[in-house]
Nucleic acid binder design. Sequence first.
DNA 1: CAGTACTGGATAGTGGCAGTATCTTCTTAA
DNA 2: TTAAGAAGATACTGCCACTATCCAGTACTG
Lengths: 227, 227
Amino acid sequence: MKISELSRRTGVPVASIKYFRREGLLPAGRATAARLAEYGEEHVQRLRLIKALTTLGGLSIAATRDVLAAVDQAETTDGTLRAISYALPVPVTAASAGDAERDADAEAAAEADVTRLIAAMDWKIPDTSPHIRGLAMALRELRRLDADYRPERLVAYAELAHSIARLDLERAAAFDDSPALAEQAVIVLALSGPMLELLRRLAQEDQVRRRSTLDDNPEEGPGDGPR
Amino acid sequence: MKISELSRRTGVPVASIKYFRREGLLPAGRATAARLAEYGEEHVQRLRLIKALTTLGGLSIAATRDVLAAVDQAETTDGTLRAISYALPVPVTAASAGDAERDADAEAAAEADVTRLIAAMDWKIPDTSPHIRGLAMALRELRRLDADYRPERLVAYAELAHSIARLDLERAAAFDDSPALAEQAVIVLALSGPMLELLRRLAQEDQVRRRSTLDDNPEEGPGDGPR
DNA sequence: CAGTACTGGATAGTGGCAGTATCTTCTTAA
DNA sequence: TTAAGAAGATACTGCCACTATCCAGTACTG
């Protein structure tokens, strides 16, 4: 199909398709002449994925390129999963300069907290993981706001995060050895977050409403509570 | 204190402090003369909160202003919680035009799925909640990618989201009737998400690594699994 | 009490990002 | 053979989050 039809099928303007090609998110079409190319279903699917990663996943164009590169280089199942896991940008990277006084101290303390949490959860994660630094920075910032995010508190969240990750990986593993693995894996790894965030917001809304009406009854009605 | 000291204490450039004032995120200092003002600890704290909401929470300046306005208008505990819950921006708002054919159909079907999910979870949420539309749009997009996010699948995530929301609200409720309630509430409601996302990514990393080494052992070691 | 440094406020400028538009050269179907 | 696209290169736009400059007014300094 021509680029105009690709545009029509996906709803992405021609100029944007060209832009994605320039930025390396979309492979070129099969050239049929010096100045003509043919696009196929894989381009349609790729554009859908690009849109999902950017609008739902909130990824930048640059991050999307990196993630898609990992998808394309998929060799083994594990390698694919790992590559995608690292290609995804770490939310919360840059923090502030702050008053810089004992920044190093606070940073080190926060990182130690994270290390302890990881040990408590029995997670196997290399010290070099960017997520460790990200979480440490987040905790430092929260601590500065007098928010109570001590490790004991965090464990409850960590256990829920663990359950979510298990659900995610189960879903990704279902596509093991399928050619669609890499694509489904990136969907699961990159888009579960935003979806979960929406569910969390809905659940929060419910909790807030319950407080409003029952007010001083922290217990719940029938039919809820996981497990 | 003068603006320069406020800047030094918080690490925020003077020009940015002025910018935040202009945008209504930061109240003006107490005027001591026609062209001089005095800032206090509340300004320091407010700047910390602004930084946390923008860098950790990923909120835009406009969204931060709205959230802070809700914090400042805090009257009752419940009102505060509700105002903040609605002031937070909905991730995933704008979607695509797409091929527009049966967009309306798909949209309606997705929204029905969400309604069914909410009923199944026994959540009390008004039909007008922006999160419902947001989730519906997210599901439609995922469905288009052939990702398996049927309601049955979603329930498992929803239950976990419910648990998280309960943890969050418990923490916020601990500050009930405290003058810091609104502030702590906004921290809990707005910043739990990013923190959880980091934890989820760490947990994902662990799961991926476990697959790599044990490969075909989906069961786990000791010390994990929530409840 | 002059000089300098600093202040709050208004306004203008900057840099990055994600597209969007234009221009030129080519291809092809009517 | 000519008008309607197509492909690619390059330039432009709009938004956002700052950042810099300018101005009149204040305050410490010696």
